[in-house]
Amino acid sequence: MSELLNDVKKTLLLQAQESDLLLNEKIVSETIHLGQQLNQRRKDLDIDLPTLELQTGVSASTLKRLFKDPDQVKFGTVLRVADALGVKLCAAV
């Protein structure tokens, strides 16, 4: 029985470590990476710029600026696009 418990503990520990690695891959340390991740998500979902423009009300030129450098657009715009792409932004203090 204790061997089975040890196996379960090892499995849970490995799963927790894998989850931490996945989470760390998604942490954005620079705003340019956020733009790149949002653009990649758009491409992964096979959404073209005109469609995203219709979904968000954000012009294609602003979307391009956002994907290149999110500092160039209002944060509310970033949130609107992230929401449309199913990307959740959160902050940890």
Rank of each mutant, 00 (worst) to 15 (best):
L45G: 02
I47D: 01
A82R: 13
G35E: 05
I32R: 10
K64R: 15
D44Q: 11
Q55E: 14
S29H: 15
L14D: 10
N24G: 04
R65M: 15
L12Q: 12
Q72D: 15
S29N: 12
D44E: 12
I27A: 05
Q37P: 00
Q17Y: 03
D71S: 13
V81H: 07
A92Y: 09
L85D: 01
E53I: 02
K88H: 09
E25L: 11
L5S: 08
A91R: 04
N24Y: 11
G57A: 02
L79V: 07
L34E: 02
T56P: 00
D46H: 11
Q36A: 09
K10S: 03
V93Y: 11
Q37V: 15
L38T: 01
Q36K: 14
A84V: 05
D69G: 03
K64F: 03
S59K: 15
L79W: 12
V28Y: 04
D71F: 07
L49V: 06
Q17W: 04
N24T: 07
R42A: 11
K9V: 01
A84N: 03
L12N: 05
K68A: 09
L79I: 06
L4Q: 01
K64A: 08
R41F: 06
G86H: 11
E18V: 13
L79C: 06
R41W: 03
Q72F: 14
E3C: 00
K68F: 13
L63F: 01
T31G: 02
E53K: 15
A16P: 00
Q72Y: 08
Q36N: 07
Q17L: 08
R65W: 14
L54A: 09
S61D: 12
I27S: 06
Q72G: 02
